[in-house]
Design a binder for these strands. Structure first.
Lengths: 293, 293
DNA sequence: ACCTGAACACCGTTCAAGT
DNA sequence: ACCTGAACACCGTTCAAGT
């Protein structure tokens, strides 16, 4: 309905990224193209944060005026989508290990590396348009390849790489928020103030975590625990550290533990699913975990 | 370092939400307070989307001028944080089922209901400040309660509710993007165009999904499959449908299947972790899945 | 065909001034 | 103490005009 979609219903940014748009340059062609514009945006985002990516800033980076950009990208939104594709770097000739759990771990590491290299990717919208971009599909293809021999349906495999990539992103986000890059943050005094209100009566489980310091300082040393970071770099809509989760244990080792834990749970879950399926070829639907409690 | 943090290092919005700020009204008090301001913001976001939440719009909703708001909230960012807390509704007297996997499923459903009721919550930053808000902590406390008797460390429990809430959010985001609310979208022709470039040679696994229509129309019927939606409601930074995942199978039933699958994998993973622990009380570190491939 | 200047309608935020 | 008017520096985007 909008104008950011081409005839076939493909989002314009998707068509552009795949080279499906008849490029407007036919004459001298000494001008711009969306590739160069997207790359300039990436440079700015890397250097000054996503909020600094302004039509004016991108144009200045390229030595053109702001309005010239509109010859090549329909809107800032389209630019951001092109940047997303340009910024995701997926290794090309990667050989996956033979064991599938190792394969999933390897793939998770690839995804993690991509997010770590460009944390602002996590502040971009991940909707259907983002999913159809070339580099996103390359990543998805690689993810599917890790489960090649397994007795899983396509939908299940997709669900799994969705779960894994979501998990990886959430922990990169968490580790980013803990990086003490330049902000003070909760002092013991602030924690105490919080403790007066997160009482053991109302929050029996969390109060313990807060009072025992599980919420604050890295083991001993450094009394200025962690950091909320919300500087001037990212606009909004992070997408990160747990819709309703807390962060218990705030040093990098704990983040690494939770990263590994999540992958272990997922692979163990797959293992159980496959085993159950191999044992009894019943229906196909979902079959909850056995239940121990 | 910024001014959006109180003495103890607590983000101002956190202190305000917990009532730790000496409220500025002492006189006639016929004016505003952050609670009313946040609620007005919620009303606007519910009605017109998050992008419509402008300082001017909020003030108008309340019958005041824009600038009066700055007496009560330090910045728009602070307002958004207060809105996040005000908008999350966690049921109060909820009794959890005895079986822990059922408990986790119940908790996931609570989280899902919260996101479904206010999808714009997913476009808000989820950083440390968000995590420390009263209603976020109430949700986390409830999540921890589902694992009360289990042989898991605190960090593990937190990792699990992080994983679950992230999964739930990602699927609500996916179902939102599929809701055909007012946009056309990829026609068969658009899919064909995409197929010319997502070739079987370069994307053997995905090409199949696209050509077999696994990417488009709900089983039979309705030839206009899905929707990318990126209207004028949400600003940016969704946080949703899979950093690198695709969406294979695009009708609501498939989304439901993936929702259930994810929870099943996680609970099965917990089951395996506990069982392994009960069997051999070895060290404590991570122990990968057995590996079947 | 491509680029530019000027202008528009909006942002969030500040500050001196009113009562 | 609280609210307001006027103003500032910035956005994304449009459009007529230049070459």
């Amino acid at each position: 309905m909008g104008d950011d979609t081409t005839e076939g219903g493909l989002p314009r940014a998707v068509a552009a990224a795949w080279g499906l748009l008849q490029t407007p340059q036919r004459g001298p062609a000494r001008g711009l193209d969306h590739q160069r514009i997207a790359e300039a945006g990436v440079v700015i985002a890397d250097r000054d944060g996503l909020a600094a990516v302004t039509m004016a800033a991108v144009a200045r980076e390229l030595g053109f005026t702001t309005m010239s950009l509109y010859r090549y990208v329909g809107s800032k939104d389209e630019l951001l989508r092109l940047m997303q594709n340009a910024a995701v770097q997926i290794p090309d000739g990667l050989v996956l290990p033979a064991s599938w759990p190792e394969g999933i771990r390897t793939w998770a590491e690839v995804v993690r590396r991509a997010y770590r290299a460009r944390p602002w990717l996590m502040d971009l919208p991940r909707d259907q348009a983002a999913v159809l971009m070339p580099n996103t599909l390359r990543a998805a293809e690689l993810g599917l390849a890790t489960m090649d021999g397994l007795d899983l349906e396509d939908g299940e495999k997709i669900g799994i790489i969705l779960l894994v990539s979501q998990h990886v992103m959430s922990l990169v986000e968490l580790e980013r928020s803990l990086a003490v890059e330049g902000g003070v943050s909760m002092t013991p005094e602030g924690l105490e103030r919080l403790g007066t209100v997160v009482t053991a009566e109302r929050f029996p489980r969390l109060a313990a975590l807060i009072s025992t310091g599980g919420f604050a300082d890295p083991p001993p040393a450094d009394p200025v625990g962690d950091d909320g970071e919300h500087g001037d770099d990212s606009e909004h809509g992070v997408g990160g550290a747990g819709g309703a989760g807390g962060a218990g244990g705030q040093d990098p080792a704990d983040v690494e533990m939770e990263y590994t834990l999540g992958l272990d749970l997922i692979t163990a879950g797959i293992d159980a699913l496959i085993a159950r399926r191999a044992a009894g070829p019943t229906a196909s639907g979902s079959a909850g975990a056995s239940g121990t409690g």
